[in-house]
Design a protein around this nucleic acid. Structure first.
Length: 780
RNA sequence: UGGGGCGUCGUCUAAAGGCAGGACGUCAGACUUUGAAUCUGAUCAUCAAGGUUCGAAUCCUUGCGCCCCAGCCA
């Protein structure tokens, strides 16, 4: 896991002693198949724990009986294992139902939860709007006894679905909707895949999730960004049920990260379901799907998926990742893993007229030295690593062959390097042929080429692959490509689609506009031939079929007697790309950036007449336009400033605005205006630099010590003595000869680097202006 | 519109207030019995405007844009 804002938080928690170990959890709901998003989230949860020597729990977040099944749970567990995660710590939220219930009772007893008895609709109405606070329902103030009794009867099954619900009693006027008395339990007469009919009340996510975390001793609970508002409930529950004092251990905290989606696909479960239901794909594990089971079936390795997850990193912004990043991760892994063999996916018959007898060639699985790994060995299709000279297979060369249909062109475009009428080309590993005759079918398409095998002194511009027409093995090839024709099918459909890549809204019908962008050639099935050596290889061998891509046998449909190969991914194809995009690419390159907009007058918010009067008064005292405007708008700041008795306003104002505004506003300011004035005096008389003053101010803010006394205690003063500065600068230059050379080579931006080093060396006390002058002099 | 979150190369992601770095892509070249791989080089970014500072992606202000929240889903 590369460093990110989460590891920063964990480092802090470990350092401060808030936690002494790291326990995370990955909490999928078993109501669908795991996909790319789960791969990313589970990577974060499992790898973070691993990096810190901690553990990660796999927890089925199964608190909604509708749609959840054991089959989904099993598939998720299998996918997680495939990704390489340790799933030995397996938990189910449904195992906590009894405890969860008891915690609900506790809340009722504390007067923090009540049984609501209005309809769902009414509840929504009473919750208010963004501008209007909610209003309490008549049931909000039921007695503890009544709540207890009602909740007992809810559990006993005495009510119908929706007749009552248990709600937390928090704050109906809170600007955060999540805190307007969230529902904790609902009545649902439904069978749960694990608890059967034991329960007819089920806990909500907001209640079950934090408590599950606390029960399992989770330390850091990561979830995606859209739950950020829910954190308020999380913390509320921790405060009221799991205070550190009561439990004797530190409560978990929730941290939110940005989701990652990928171009040319969709990941919403409902949309994937729709693709399956409509038969656009053949199932959840159709190799075109972004599900983990589909990637597994397609032949993508777990190592690739993990490498991808690692590369896309973690941040607090939702992102749609370039498909190329994923493809690169897949190719990078396969390049070192997949032996090279030949297969022809769209055969064109070739007859070598001067080849009398069949020959057997011994061709290397790894024609390239570069693929050799550190141990000097190379993998066979079995996975066994052997010296490269032993990594060979036999390939029959017969009179009749097949080559790729596209490797012959009767009207070759400029730059075409393959076979043309009368032209020559090298057959990989077999020699150079010349095309003597082209037999065409009724539609004018070539159906057979008659060729002559030439000697090794012949010349050819290109190399093509081939397979014996008679000894090669017939096979089906499934050429898998991106599922959509546009990078963001969701956004393309956006004007119709309120449901954006974020969370799923089951209350709205699925927007189906994205279906318009399904790529009609996302799956192309062809029949061709593969060299016979593969027939004896293990079924899970991955190959590079030279010049066409990485393949392996479809684990579901391939038979020994009827081979089916999935294309895991194509090779990069700069030729094909160039051929199809030369023109538009040029156009795009000449496209100019829009000119920078001319500088506008600074925008300042309008002031009320009263504020304007204040601002004018301040300006008169010499306060800048900007500062005056802000001080006028924020009476707190103005009041602070004027505590100085109206003296030296102009001098103090920038400090108040730039350095003290936030603490003053938040009520955490610990530097009085007189103390500030004393500090500013030191700056004014030149005994300390503004730089020192800022550092001191920050320290004063956290320690509460008077700034001037910090200055005195530490003996801070500005160092402008030339001799002293020269010594310091020389020290820095001597320590960084390479940087000096770069600077003299023209990298003038390094001035900042040198200044920084000098400032550090002098404990921030050097006079920066003097440093700048001496630096440019000494660097020549 | 109330609340919350977020804006760095085309895409992901780095930079105790001090060199805007890396990866992928793209382009060019070298090499090549894979139009692949490999190698070299290049292109390309701090949302905007003001301010503070010797110095701002980072601090302050204002503005703009995107995302999330009014399920008895998660």
């Amino acid at each position: 896991m590369s460093p990110n804002f989460i590891t920063e938080i964990i480092d802090g928690d470990l350092e401060s002693g808030r936690h002494t170990r790291v326990v995370t959890r990955f909490p999928p709901e078993p109501n669908g198949y795991a996909h790319l998003g789960h791969a990313f989230a589970s990577y974060l949860d499992f790898m973070t724990a691993q990096d810190y020597g901690g553990v990660c729990h796999l927890r089925m977040d199964d608190t909604n009986p509708e749609g959840e099944t054991q089959e989904y749970a099993d598939s998720i567990i299998r996918d997680m294992q495939w990704l390489g995660w340790d799933t030995s710590r397996l938990f189910y939220a449904s195992d906590y139902y009894e405890q969860l219930h008891d915690f609900a009772v506790q809340l009722i007893r504390k007067g923090l939860a009540y049984v609501e008895s209005v309809s769902g609709e009414e509840m929504a109405r009473l919750r208010g709007t963004v501008e209007q606070p909610g209003t309490p329902s008549p049931y909000r103030n039921r007695s503890v006894e009544e709540n207890l009794e009602l909740f007992r009867r809810m559990r006993a099954g005495e009510f119908k679905n929706g007749e009552h619900a248990l709600r937390a009693k928090i704050d109906l006027a809170h600007p955060n909707f999540k805190l307007r008395d969230p529902v904790l339990y609902r009545i649902l007469h439904a069978s749960h895949y694990r608890t059967g009919d034991t329960w007819c009340i089920y806990p909500m996510y907001d209640f079950a999730h934090p408590i599950s975390d606390a029960l399992e001793g989770i330390t850091h609970s990561m979830c995606s960004l859209e739950f950020i508002d829910n954190r308020a409930i999380y913390d509320w529950l921790m405060d009221n049920l799991f205070s550190d004092k009561e439990t004797g251990r530190t409560a978990p905290r929730q941290h939110e990260f940005g989701r990652r989606s990928m171009e040319y696909t969709v990941v919403s479960k409902r949309k994937l379901r729709r693709l399956v239901r409509e038969g656009v794909v053949k199932g959840w594990d159709d190799p075109r799907m972004p599900t983990i089971s589909a990637m597994r079936r397609r032949g993508v390795t777990p190592e690739s998926v993990r490498a991808f997850a690692s590369q896309i990193g973690v941040s607090r912004t939702n992102r749609t990742v370039d498909l190329a990043l994923f493809e690169n991760a897949v190719r990078e892994d396969l390049n070192l893993r997949a032996p090279r063999v030949m297969a022809v996916t769209r055969p064109l018959k070739v007859v070598i007229q001067n080849l009398e007898a069949e020959r057997t060639l011994s061709l290397p699985y790894w024609p390239q030295q570069e693929e050799l790994s550190a141990d000097g060995k190379v993998p066979l299709p079995t996975g066994e690593r052997v010296p490269s000279e032993k990594a060979v297979r036999e390939v029959p060369l017969t009179r009749e062959l097949v080559i790729e249909h596209d490797d012959f062109s009767a009207n070759p475009p400029k730059g075409f390097k393959r076979l043309t009428p009368g032209g020559t080309v090298r057959l990989r590993g077999a020699g150079i042929i010349r095309c003597d005759e082209v037999i065409t079918g009724a539609n004018g398409e070539p159906t057979e080429l008659r060729v002559t095998l030439l000697g090794e002194d012949a010349k050819a511009g290109g190399v093509i692959h081939w397979v014996s027409a008679t000894r090669g093995v017939s096979a089906e090839f499934r050429l898998v490509d991106r599922l959509f024709t546009v990078p963001e099918p969701d956004s393309e459909a956006q004007q119709f689609d309120p449901e954006q890549p974020g969370h799923e809204d089951d209350t709205q019908p699925v927007n189906t506009d994205f279906m318009r962008f399904v790529n009609p050639s996302s799956l192309v099935v062809t029949r061709g031939r593969v060299e016979p050596s593969v027939a004896k290889d293990p079924a899970d061998a991955r190959y590079q079929f030279e010049r066409t891509g990485y393949f392996w046998r479809d684990p579901v449909d391939s038979r020994d007697t009827a081979l089916v190969f999935n294309r895991i991914i194509t090779l990069k194809d700069t030729w094909g790309k160039k051929a199809e995009t030369t023109e538009p690419a040029k156009a795009a390159r000449t496209e100019k950036k829009p000119e920078k907009a001319p500088a506008e007058a600074p925008v300042r918010p309008a002031l009320s007449s009263e504020q304007e009067a204040t601002a004018a008064r301040l300006r008169q005292q010499g306060v800048s336009e900007n500062d005056a405007s802000m001080l006028a708008r924020e009476p707190q700041l103005a009041a602070y400033l004027e505590g100085a008795g109206g003296k030296r306003l102009a001098e103090l104002a920038p400090w108040v605005v730039n350095d003290l505004a936030t603490p003053i506003r938040e009520g955490t300011n610990r530097v009085g205006v007189d103390a500030l004035a004393a500090l500013v005096t030191l700056v004014a008389e030149g005994s300390i630099s503004a730089r020192i003053a800022k550092d001191v101010l920050a320290e004063a803010q956290s320690s509460g010590e008077a700034p001037a006394s910090i200055v005195e205690r530490k003996g801070l003063r500005v160092v402008s003595d030339e001799g002293q500065l020269r010594t310091a600068i020389q020290g820095v230059l001597d320590a960084n000869p390479a940087k000096v050379a770069e600077y003299r080579g023209g990298k003038k931006g390094l001035t900042g680097f040198f200044t920084g080093q000098v400032m550090r060396a002098t404990n921030g006390q050097a006079d920066p202006k003097a440093v700048a002058r001496l630096l440019s002099e000494m660097l020549g």
